[in-house]
Structures are given as C-alpha cells and as structure tokens.
Amino acid sequence: MQRVPELVVIGGSWGGIQAALQILKGLPPNYSLPIVLVLHRLRDQEGNLQEIFERKTRLTTVEIEDKQQLVPGMLYLAPPNYHVLLENDRTFALDDSELENYSRPSIDVTFTSAADVYGDQVAGIILSGASSDGSSGLKYIFEKGGTALVQQPQEAEIDTMPLAAIRATPGCRIMQLIDIQEFLLSLHVN
C-alpha cells in the first residue's frame, strides 16, 4: 500500500515554466503540501520567476534560502546556480557543487535528496524539457516507493525530458497536465 505523499517535487526545463503554471494555477492557496519546483534557468538570471508564479498561481511563492523550513501551501523555487538539497529536519540546504547533467540546479539532485528524507512519501513530476536531467532522480523516487509522474510527451513543448524519464522509469504514470493537476488536488486535505 503506497503511502500518501507529503511533498511534491517538480522538475522541468524548456517549456517547463508554462507546464508548471498550467498545473499549479488550479491549486488552492492553503494547499496542504509543500511544493518544490526545480527549473533549469539561465545561469545569472535574476529571479522574476518568483513574480510570475506569485502572480499566476494562488500559492505563496519564494525563492529558496539556505536553511529555510518547508511549510505546506508554499511553492519553493530553486534559485539559479545552486543545487537544492533537503535535510532530515525538513529544511532546505543549498549546495554549489559540480553541475549535474550540465545543470545547477539539477532536478536529479533535488529528487534524490527528497526521496532520502521523505522516503516513499514523495511525488515526483517531470515536465517538458530539452535535457535528460530528472530521469535518474525520478527513478530513485520510484524505487523507494514514491509516486512518479511524467507529463505526456505529445503534450510537452519539448519531449526529451519526459521521454528520458519514461525510459528510466517504465512504471511511472504518464499523464496530461490537467490530470496531474487533478492528482495534486486529490492529495489536498482541507
């Protein structure tokens, strides 16, 4: 019996912003889980992503600071040029070590760390993107008993990332954005 997720982690690259907005705009402001969003960004790009998500969703959106506590109903954005790890006390830890899959932040790094802390109570979601980052992280979540979801490749702006994720984790659930949103709403406890 799979346990109910306590954390949602989402990864995407090219086309990932739009896809994430599609999913997240339907969530209530008091959504009962924390959501961590790792999007590949230009290296020194300053954070207007935070404004975009703050404006277009009903979730309170912040760019992650080191040692920040994970709180339900918050949308946490990975900052440019740092990997995002999670600590056992459910705080964030930033890391500026080597790029993974040519990326920092790397989706694999955050997904893996999330599964190390939350075990089987993580839902990992891979969206549109032109890289294979995230596929081994999603596999890691799945192997630990967590939930693995992938955006339907035909629907993705760039299907490289969803296809790589599906190849790595054949047991994942392939869903359209609207159904991923439904799934997230089904996790919400009022």
Partner: peptide, 8 residues
C-alpha cells in the same frame, strides 16, 4: 550540514 555530507 548533513544533506551535503551524506551526498558527498
């Protein structure tokens, strides 16, 4: 910070 130590 442990998350990084474990990972490294």
């Amino acid at each position: 910070a442990r998350a990084s130590v474990y990972r490294r």
